[in-house]
Amino acid sequence: MSFTTKTTSQRTVVPGSPPIGGRGLLGRSRKGVPPWAVTISVGWLVLLMAGALLLPVLPLPDPSRSDYAAIMAPMFSPGHILGTDEVGRDILARLLSGAQVSLFVGVASIALAVVLGAPMGILAGYFGGWANRFIVAGLDIVLSFPNLVALIALSLFLGPGLWTIVVGIGIIASAPVARVARSATLTFVNRDFVTAARGMGFGHARIIVREILPNVVVPVLAYAIVVIAVAIVAEASLSFLGLGIQPPDASWGSMMGTGRAKLTQAPHIVLLPAFTMALSILAINFLAEHFAKRFDIKESAL
């Protein structure tokens, strides 16, 4: 789980040498993601989103309320279809409540990352020279910190909580987003239509907004989908450590973190959020790969 493993595959070692790393997640095969995988991914995410949004009206127990008559109830218990956790809270309700957190963190942090990172990357790619060198060095500095360590340091600073997670992930993820935006800008900045716009006497602002931006949006958004998955894992990791979502609120990470103590007696407390998270990440990655193929985005071009 790292924002940087993705970007290491995009770096060029020495000018003129081939880029390191793979092509898409599914390799360089001509075929894209199989259609059934796309259907199942969309289905799972829609189900999860519907469950998260409809949680208040679903006939489920309150996710924070303990049922002292049924502590650590196994799966398929009466009244608790997925059982209860170590203090008797309904696991299904908590999974859906955790889904709310994951979806919110995924979308909000990536929105922040794009708003912060894309302009930096476009400016670096468009103007080159010192602006480029300054921004690239800045990005390298941010990317030198392991994500989780940087997030933990930020959480010390901002105090644990939902907004800390969103702001922290947003800031850290803005660095790889800026790299993607910069590389995409570089591939367009010397194209004929940009030269033509310049020849017609348009200013930098107009060229960036009208000529560069529309071309950079697609690769940035395709990359952003991958980062949503990374953000969800980052939130879970922080909450697992107890530095993210605070009790009694539920998060997949905190469910695993607190349930870990009961791993021997009731492994389902840990395994259910683990599987829910893994499936969701897989679904998001499949969709990201599908879009990348669909819009013919090659990592080698980044």
């Binding site: 789980m1 879970a236 990791s237 395994l271 998270m277 893994a278 990440i281 897989l282 990655n285």
Partner: peptide
């Protein structure tokens, strides 16, 4: 690749 490594270790 889609399964976070700490989840793998728990499993």
């Amino acid at each position: 690749q889609s399964i976070p490594n700490f989840v793998v270790s728990l499993v």
